[in-house]
């Protein structure tokens, strides 16, 4: 409980900091007053239409990625699992890339996120079909790896055959992930899917705890395993698919955040869920602030910064784990 309070305060502070960070150069008091009262036209516009949706999306995307990672690690009983592993991120990216390349993305405002969600959903259905009705976590991992590889190959093929170099560079930048220039339209399209995903994943807490004892024992404890699998995978697809749809591919959050927070919840998979949601939100907000502070005049991509933060952190964790096991 204390951990959740600390993380909530951290998210709130970073949210505020995110609202106050940007190239426009307004003072903090002026910015917040404009946000609340609506006085001062330029400031209000910047605050309400640019920075507020960006900060809100940071929370939503981070919470989705952190929560999905924790749920998948709990379900697959593998600390290396993340949404990317079961092919959801790459399939969402594939959907988005196809939309960008075919020009479908330019046809209407929501075409890109819709295509990404479609890709994520398609991947989930394929994982289900491959893993079978009684498939355990291992078959889900194997099916996910196969689909991930397939989506990656298709993605390369699309870029390879693209006749339009401009579309290729647009695609490559999109795939680096960013929260820049997002509006409330993005918030509204992502929110219903993410909220559905959060609810589904929230319902898995007790089942994930029971899975500590293995699938057989959990089933005998009265946990409906096929329902648990449905909730874990559909919840991850909805949350991660929507996050990828509005922010592009942002890796490492779902992997690193549960890893860092696990010792603080005594490794209980159910308790790790809310903690990872808050932790993910904090990490994405912090990285998105860093993006704007480090190179304010270059459009530094969030996914790139996250990889720079995440990879060394992860290496350190592996090193520490190895020392503990020795």
């Amino acid at each position: 409980m204390r951990l959740l309070s600390v993380l909530s305060v951290l998210v709130a502070a970073l949210f505020l900091l995110s609202l106050l960070t940007g190239p426009a150069g307004f003072g903090p008091g002026e910015s917040l007053a404009a946000l609340v009262s609506g006085r001062g036209e330029a400031v209000t516009l910047v605050m309400r239409e640019i920075r507020l949706p960006r900060a809100i999306l940071g929370v939503m995307v981070g919470a989705s990625l952190g929560l999905s990672g924790a749920a998948l690690q709990g379900y697959l009983r593998n600390p290396l699992a993340e949404p990317g592993l079961i092919g959801i991120s790459s399939s969402a990216a594939l959907g988005a890339v196809i939309a960008l390349q075919t020009g479908f993305a330019a046809s209407f405002a929501l075409a890109l996120p819709v295509a990404a969600l479609g890709g994520a959903l398609f991947a989930v259905l394929l994982v289900f079909a491959l893993a079978g009705p009684r498939g355990g976590s291992l078959t889900v991992i194997l099916a996910g790896i196969a689909i991930s590889a397939l989506a990656g190959a298709l993605l390369s093929l699309v870029l390879n055959l693209s006749p339009n170099p401009f579309a290729v560079s647009e695609t490559v930048f999109w795939m680096m992930g960013s929260l820049a220039d997002r509006s409330f339209t993005h918030v509204w399209i992502a929110l219903p899917f993410m909220a559905a995903g959060w609810i589904a994943l929230g319902l898995t807490a007790r089942g994930l705890d029971a899975l500590t004892l293995g699938e057989d024992a959990a089933g005998a404890l009265g946990i409906p395993l096929s329902r648990l699998r449905l909730l874990a995978i559909l919840g991850t697809a909805a949350a991660t698919g929507a996050a990828t749809a509005v922010a592009g591919a942002i890796g490492f959050v779902g992997l690193v955040v549960p890893h860092i927070l696990r010792p603080f919840v005594q490794s209980r998979p159910g308790a790790l869920l809310p903690a990872s949601a808050l932790g993910g939100a904090a990490l994405v907000l912090a990285a998105d602030i860093a993006v704007r502070l480090v190179l304010p005049d270059r459009d530094l991509k969030l996914g790139v910064v996250m990889a720079f933060v995440g990879a060394p952190l992860f290496l350190h964790l592996i090193y520490r784990t190895r020392r503990q096991m020795a």
Partner: peptide, 15 residues
């Protein structure tokens, strides 16, 4: 009925 499977699985370092 309580069931203790043969595979003694403990997936996480819980107390």
């Amino acid at each position: 009925a309580a069931w203790m499977p043969q595979s003694r699985e403990i997936a996480w370092p819980v107390t």
